[in-house]
């Protein structure tokens, strides 16, 4: 019988070698194919989030799933903001939107740096048609970003989309309604996002006077949109939550200006349960800083689940 320590060494060596091999294959597979240089990840521009994600951001040429955490349009906003980052990095701005929900509004998209003329849209239809249209849009290779709103997103459809995205280099954003967290998914990353109140004194919506300079302090949001961002799944990254603030700005990339970890002691339930008509509330802007390792452990022990 072979002594254990050498066997373990050999095994770990083999595993390490295989891991590097797999990483190499995966990296090669993630690019648009042989001969193309690997494009960089789509970053949030926030060190905390980009650093947390393996690869330093969202992989281009992949499918990313964004689940609405409320009945608002935060998921749309996040998809638009990420796509705007993608456009700025890829040097392309063509997009394809396969919508089922409320119609998009061009003037609002313009604030995200979207060019209405560079977009093609389909409206209505079934999930099957939307997913098919997304796949066609990815396969034709003309679009930097392809969006689709679906209610159900079967793993089979997801894999097809992922292949089409990988082969064409286009990035797909699948927008899903509330409560889709439980369904299985093959998306590269999976997010849940909901609108959260801005800091007191900040006004909702963007203003005409863009904030070119970063906000002077974390407690003042200025004007923009605040979201709670939950990373549900991200290629090996631990689930984690942040509060992010999107602010319009002339300086590209337009997203975002501020970010902070979502404090553990403030759940969203607290705010939904706030008395109606209250004109002020304490937004979770000044949560105590928790060491990162501890936070991850807490997440693992009991991930927060929103109700409804």
């Amino acid at each position: 019988m072979t002594p254990m320590p050498p066997a373990g060494d050999a095994r770990s060596e083999t595993i390490a070698r295989l891991r590097t091999e797999i990483a190499r294959i995966e990296a090669a597979g993630a690019t648009g194919g042989p001969g193309t240089t690997a494009p960089g990840p789509v970053t949030f521009g926030i060190a905390a989030i980009d650093g947390h994600l393996p690869g330093g951001g969202l992989a281009p040429g992949a499918v990313h799933e964004i689940i609405a955490g409320d009945d608002g349009m935060a998921a749309t906003g996040l998809a638009l903001a990420l796509a705007a980052r993608l456009f700025a990095m890829a040097g392309r701005r063509s997009w394809f939107w396969c919508g089922q929900g409320l119609p998009l509004y061009g003037p609002g998209l313009a604030a995200f740096g979207f060019d209405a003329g560079a977009g093609l849209m389909t409206r209505g239809g079934s999930d099957r048609e939307v997913l098919w249209a997304m796949e066609e849009g990815l396969a034709c290779g003309a679009f930097a970003a392809v969006f689709g709103e679906v209610k159900t997103f079967a793993p089979h459809a997801g894999r097809r989309l992922a292949l089409a995205a990988r082969d064409s280099g286009g990035t797909a954003f699948v927008l899903r309604g509330r409560g889709a967290e439980g369904a299985p998914s093959v998306a590269a990353t999976r997010w849940r996002v909901r609108s959260v109140p801005l800091a007191p004194g900040a006004l909702p919506g963007a203003t005409d006077s863009p904030a070119d300079s970063p906000p002077d302090s974390q407690s003042a949001d200025g004007e923009g949109y605040a979201w709670r961002l939950d990373l549900l799944r991200g290629g090996g990254a631990m689930p984690r939550s942040w509060r992010v603030l999107w602010r319009p700005g002339r300086a590209a990339p337009p997203f975002p200006a501020a970010c902070e970890d979502w404090p553990q002691d403030h759940g969203c339930e607290d705010q939904t349960g706030a008395p109606p008509g209250a004109l002020s509330l304490a937004p979770p802007l000044s949560g105590g800083t928790v060491p990162q390792g501890e936070r991850i452990l807490q997440r693992e022990a009991g991930p927060r689940r929103e109700t409804g």
Partner: peptide, 16 residues
């Protein structure tokens, strides 16, 4: 096309 800046950026992303 209209230049994006010509529009007030105080508009929603979805319109009923």
């Amino acid at each position: 096309l209209l230049p994006a800046r010509a529009l007030p950026p105080t508009r929603p992303v979805r319109l009923l």
